[in-house]
């Protein structure tokens, strides 16, 4: 699981497409929340799963969408 997280981090930094990078950073948060369950921290796991991997990705996608619209208008 830690290996998957590290590979995802490399994808998040070095991938050309921004959408793929954002989703990779969301997957990092998701696996981190699974690790929190193993570390006996259910509170933190719920928070990380709902905020880190859902809301952050949604906010990123809103901004990407907006940037694409500005490109279209230009």
């Amino acid at each position: 699981m830690a290996l998957i997280m590290i590979v995802m981090a490399f994808i998040a930094i070095y991938h050309k497409s921004l959408q793929v990078a954002v989703i990779a950073s969301g997957i990092i948060s998701l696996f981190a929340s699974v690790i929190y369950i193993f570390l006996a921290a259910p509170d933190v796991a719920i928070t990380e799963a709902s905020i880190g991997s859902a809301l952050t990705v949604v906010i990123f996608f809103y901004v990407l969408n907006k940037i694409r619209r500005i490109d279209d208008k230009k």
Binding site: P42, I46, S50
Partner: peptide
């Protein structure tokens, strides 16, 4: 139970 204000608030926002 595990949970609380921050988690519930995040669920409401989603």
């Amino acid at each position: 139970t595990p949970g609380g204000g921050f988690q519930g608030g995040a669920v409401l926002a989603s």
